[in-house]
Amino acid sequence: MKKQIFLQNMFSERKNSDIDKLVNDALKAEPDYFLPDNFADMVAEKVAEKFAWQQYVLEFLIYFGVVIGLAAVVVAMQFIFFGAQWQNWLHFITENIFVIAGISLLTVFVLFTDKVLLKYFLYRSAHSKELI
């Protein structure tokens, strides 16, 4: 009787440790998910493209800020040192609003094209040649 209980306990302990071993193995087993072999290259390219775009936009904004800043300094100097009258300026602006708006838009467009679009497309075309 004692022997039977001993054997039962032994079998139960062994079964328990085997189940533990199986559970441990399953928990450490690699799940069945895969990424493509070129995943790292793909992500690095995507990020580099985003990074380049952000850099170009930042550069454009810096240039734009500098141009606006310079214009503001010139206007301020006109008022402070040369006694310019704001009514005259307002009159001039309202009379030539379309010309002023057109020139401003054209300047911004040229600056944007030069600093962002052109660089970005050059980057992309260089990159697509690299891939070929």
């Binding site: 799940p31 998910y33 895969f34 990424l35 995943f39 790292a40 290259d41 992500v43 690095a44 990020v47 580099a48 990074f51």
Partner: peptide
């Protein structure tokens, strides 16, 4: 510093970790 290869290395080193977490 903008080193693309360094980022590629980072992705390659951690993609197993990321896919395990995301996949699960």
């Amino acid at each position: 510093n903008g080193n693309k290869n360094a980022f590629r290395f980072l992705v390659a080193n951690h993609q197993r970790l990321v896919i395990h977490i995301v996949g699960r």
